[in-house]
Design a protein around this nucleic acid. Structure first.
Length: 429
RNA sequence: GUGACCGUAGCUCAGCCGGUAGAGCAUCGGAUUGUGGCUCCGAGUGUCGCGGGUUCGAUCCCCGUCGGUCACCCCA
């Protein structure tokens, strides 16, 4: 088939091939394990939600809602959208199932794909995976610190070193509103000097001007009023104790008053983790999150404080050095005589039934080729079954690393194998 | 979405001033009729991303398009 007619993956979407899955599973398993150790339980929500859910939560004026959503009309009825992030769905589920009536504090985690129609680049895909947590019902600041601590624990366990943890507070709604007005007042006289994009944002989303990368904008913003000066007494106390808690937990962090995240629902605590290592390009935000104390109520639930974060799995994999993977098989079975393939297949079945990861080349190829395959797959042991062994009811057990082999009676097979194979447990990844 | 660069075998890439393609790695087979890592021998695949234009002739030049990458934007 010619390349032009061949069907390919959609732009910005990619396959994770089996050879990469070991690394993915390791990250997922570490996240799961640590989240559960912190009292979080997994939730799975649909990939498709009513469009209005995202418009009402993420915000009409945000880039995500304004230009990045995969939305479609379902058979002439409702407008549906492929989820661009996880929090909105979790909040919807929290409200829909009246979880607040069942427990005071709810801690959920999720892993799954998200969809945003952006221009693809390294570390930025149109379908990408996020692992995240949401904690409902605890106003903080201890739960803020706990969430950030979990995030840092996960990244550390994955093996990421050079991390930068950035925190900020944008206050609760009234503080945020007072600051927004002050910022607009300050920026208005400079309007002509701002970048075009920021001039537009002055109307739609002035806080976003703060983290503009345009040098002109940055120069102006340097003298802008700081949001931390506009926090209410309670907001400031909340943020200060969060900073103290982080220090106490040994989490190095930097306060960046210009950290403003692109979703409208945030209030008070905001944080982001950036990476430096590996093959990470310009997309160095590995994880981000914050508090969204007003969102549950805004979507029709009872007033419920909440905090959460999400981390991008592809970016984390880019950021960490390639780790060495262990073999994916324990034993390879080989035979010089294709007429013994029925015995080989039977042996495989027994081995597998006993929990041993075993495979063989069942095509009847040369012994040499069978051993080459075993070698290439990094299998530590080969069981050789030929006419001679068959006649004596033995196997040749070949140690591929030690270059040694010995003859063992068939009756001692499992004992000998178990003795040699390293202990494996599902979580020991 | 804007600007720029790139696109040759499964992978990494070479290919001069336009004359329709090569290397290394990988794969498979053999040297060793029942033994893997080294060595040696052999085998194969490309509509040179796709479409159009210029030309006697295009992998090479031009236009478009698709994909990737970088910066902006934004974010995980």
């Amino acid at each position: 088939m010619s390349a032009s007619t061949r069907i390919r993956a959609v732009k910005g979407m990619h396959d994770v091939l089996p050879q990469a899955m070991a690394r993915w599973k390791r990250v997922e398993a570490l996240f799961r394990d640590l989240a559960e150790r912190h009292g979080y339980a997994e939730i799975r929500t649909p990939l498709v939600e009513p469009t209005s859910l995202f418009v009402r939560s993420i915000g009409e004026s945000t880039d995500i809602v304004g230009k990045e959503m995969y939305s479609f009309v379902d058979k002439g009825e409702d407008s549906l959208t492929l989820r661009p992030e996880g929090t909105a769905s979790a909040v919807r589920a929290y409200i829909e199932h009246e979880i607040h009536a069942q427990e005071a504090v709810t801690k959920w985690y999720y892993i799954g794909p998200m969809f945003r129609r952006e221009r693809p680049a390294r570390g930025r895909y149109r379908q990408f995976w996020q692992a995240g947590i949401e904690c409902f019902g605890d106003p903080g600041p201890y739960s803020d610190a706990e969430a950030i601590a979990l995030l840092v624990e996960v990244l550390r366990a994955i093996g990421l070193s050079e991390l930068e943890v950035v925190v900020n507070s944008i206050g609760s709604r009234s503080s945020k509103e007072r600051y927004r007005q002050a910022l607009v007042e300050f920026l208005k006289p400079h309007k002509e000097a701002l970048s075009l994009e920021s001039q537009r944002r002055l109307e739609t989303n002035p806080l976003r001007i703060l983290d503009s990368k345009d040098p002109k904008d940055q120069a102006i913003c340097k003298n802008a009023p700081a949001i931390l000066d506009f926090l209410s007494e309670q907001d400031r106390a909340h943020f200060e104790s969060l900073c103290e808690l982080l220090a106490r937990l040994g989490i190095e962090s930097r306060v960046d008053p210009h950290l403003v995240r692109g979703l409208d629902y945030y209030s008070r605590t905001l944080f982001e983790v950036r990476g430096k290592g590996g093959e990470l390009g310009a997309q160095n935000a590995l994880a981000g999150g914050g508090r969204y104390d007003e969102l549950v109520e805004a979507l029709g639930g009872p007033p419920t404080p909440a905090i959460g974060f999400a981390m991008g799995i592809e970016r984390i994999l880019l950021a960490c050095e390639n780790t060495q993977e262990g073999p994916s098989l324990d034993v390879w079975v080989a035979t010089p005589d294709p007429s013994l393939l029925p015995c080989v297949l039977e042996l495989l079945t027994l081995l597998r039934r006993d929990g041993i990861r075993a495979d063989a080349d069942l095509r009847g190829t040369s012994l040499r080729s069978q051993l080459r395959r075993a070698q290439k797959k990094g299998v530590p042991f080969v069981l050789l079954l030929g006419p001679e062994e068959e006649a004596k009811s033995t196997f040749r057990l070949k140690d591929m690393e030690g270059h040694s082999e010995e003859e063992i009676p068939q009756s001692a097979l499992f004992f000998e194998l178990k003795r040699r194979l390293p202990k494996r447990s599902p979580s020991a990844l």
